[in-house]
Computed example of a mutant assay.
Amino acid sequence: MFEIRKASKSSGAKSTSRRDVLIGGTAAIAAPYVLSTAAKASDRLVLVFAGGSTQIALEEAIVKPFTAETGIPVTIVNTIDMAKLKIQVESKTTEWDLFDFVGPALMQAGSQGLLEKIEPDVFKGTAMFENPSPYMVGYGIYVGGICWDPARNPKAPRTYPEFWDVKKFPGRRGLRMRASETLECALLADGVPPKEIYPMDLDRAFRSLERIKPYVRKWVEQTQQTVDLVQTGELDFSYTYLNRTKAARDAGISMDFSQDQLVVYGSYYVVPKGAPHKNAAMRYLSFLLRPDRLADYCRRVSVIPGNLKANEFLDEATRKSLPDVNNPAYVVLNNAWWAENFAKVEPRFKEFVLSSR
Rank of each mutant, 00 (worst) to 15 (best):
T318H: 11
V345W: 12
E340L: 12
T37I: 02
R283F: 04
R283L: 09
A310W: 01
A339C: 04
L35C: 15
S238K: 10
P272S: 02
P134D: 13
A151Y: 08
M82D: 01
F101Q: 09
S53N: 05
S53E: 14
R357F: 04
L285R: 06
Q231I: 13
K6M: 09
C298N: 07
Y269I: 09
S180T: 13
T94N: 02
T126K: 09
K278E: 14
T79M: 00
V46R: 04
Q231G: 06
P323D: 04
K278G: 02
L308D: 05
I253F: 05
S238L: 04
A247V: 06
T16R: 03
G25V: 01
V166G: 01
L322P: 14
Q261T: 04
S258F: 03
E210T: 05
T54F: 09
L308H: 04
A317F: 03
D256A: 14
V332S: 11
K168H: 05
G71Q: 07
D324N: 13
G52S: 13
A31P: 05
G174K: 08
R299S: 15
E351R: 15
L58P: 14
G145E: 05
P214S: 09
G145M: 14
T16A: 07
N311V: 13
P65T: 03
Q225P: 07
K92H: 11
K167Q: 14
Y215L: 02
G274P: 02
S11F: 10
F169Q: 00
L262G: 03
F257D: 09
A329M: 05
A30S: 15
S91D: 03
D296T: 15
F129I: 12
K92Y: 01
Y142W: 12
R300N: 14
G140D: 10
L242P: 12
K273F: 05
E90L: 07
Y142T: 11
S11K: 02
G266C: 03
A280R: 02
G140V: 09
K344I: 15
R158M: 10
N327D: 14
D203C: 05
D190V: 02
A156D: 06
A205V: 11
E95A: 08
A275V: 01
Q259L: 06
K14G: 07
V264Y: 10
G274V: 01
P199I: 02
M255K: 05
K86S: 09
P193T: 06
P214H: 02
A280D: 10
E95S: 08
F257A: 09
P157E: 11
K6V: 13
I56T: 12
S11I: 00
V89G: 05
L333W: 01
E60Q: 15
I197W: 01
E90C: 00
V74R: 01
G52N: 05
K9G: 08
V143H: 05
R319G: 03
N335C: 04
A39W: 04
T318E: 04
G174C: 12
A179K: 06
R18N: 03
S36I: 08
